[in-house]
Design a protein around this nucleic acid. Sequence first.
DNA 1: TCTGGGGTCCTAGGACCC
DNA 2: TCTGGGGTCCTAGGACCC
Length: 408
Amino acid sequence: MRGAATILHADLDAFYASVEVRDRPELRGKPVAVGGGVVLAATYEARRFGVSAPLGGAEARRRCPGLIVVPARFEAYVEASRAVMAIFDDFTPRVEPISIDEAFLEVGGSERLFGPAEDIARTIRERVRAEVGLPISIGVATTKHLAKIASRVAKPDGLVVVPAGEEEGFLDPLPVGMVWGIGPVGEERLARYGIHTIGELRAMPQSSVVEWFGQAWGTDLWERARNDDPRSVERRARAGSVGAQSAGDSTDPDRRHTTLLALADRIGARMRRKHLAGRRVTVRVRLDDMSLLTRARVLPGPIAETTPLFRITAELVDALIHDRAANRGITLVGISVSMLEEAPHLQLVLPLEEEQVTTSGSRSHLRARELDAAVDRARERCGRPAVTRGALLRNTPEERSPTEAMGE
DNA sequence: TCTGGGGTCCTAGGACCC
DNA sequence: TCTGGGGTCCTAGGACCC
């Protein structure tokens, strides 16, 4: 027998859109979408017209003629998110943020102070509404997976409690797509076996599910369908990778290199700020038919400097395009760095290091680090847009490409 | 209906080692 | 000379999540 229902999954409703409505009361009750080219979030009034993320802006307006489209204000969302997470912290130290707008809370140790989990959930909802001005839905259950499903069922602006012992009755009639990890492809595959509800999936032998979905994934799904989910609420682990991508036409090599340099610069700065460096560099290319290609390289040591990051990604992307996509249109390039390690000294240049770097012959690596540190410092003082790498400003064909400009 | 940007996890196959 | 089984690392790709 599992314990009492003490796990909360709290999920802000239509988060970005709700922040906009909060700050502009004239939008209340109207169909609102946040974004521009693509919808990032939509109010429930807009969703009734089939407008939701990620839908193209033009199509969204077609579906919903009165749609009000507002640009995203990420600083406001980060601010609101912090305020909400701070409220969670008032009730338990065991808060596991999942993304900007949702978190798990383990409140088993807090009931003596604040009452039963259901009361805690109710109080949190009231406080988020009163102090941050946003609607939030909460699911309460005995496991994380079930709490997450419960919060989805609770939406919008609701509370659903699944008491211990009532899990199967709650789960069984729900569609399999509600299981975390079953998306459109998995749903379609299960439909071919006549399985549409979680109850039907639970009735299958584990061996069949493993056969369909592979060892690890099949076992997970089967356990989730049975609500046999051993994961506990943990404080968030550090990110495993840092990446950035840019959609748009990157067919032209010069333009592509400019984009890659901007991406390398962005994630390099992000890693340095967090004192991280990574050993694996992965690039991603999307072709004009939306298919994706990737290439990865593991380096002998971790890096976080913009210049080598740019050089490696440009090499990988160019080779990938040469091998697999010559004469194709390129509609997106992305890079990411993983196998991250702590690198607390990243912005310092120690005498010993300098000597090693010099004798190993890669002085440019050292200069790159000094340049990054200078750029990062300037940005801290003046704000990000104040400092831009020269190569990012040169875009006309007669000028040198960033590859050349970086001193290849 | 032709689609943004940030991530996670899993699989399969090859290279390599013992 | 030919062979097995196990383990690890790496690469490419796919599905999924917010």
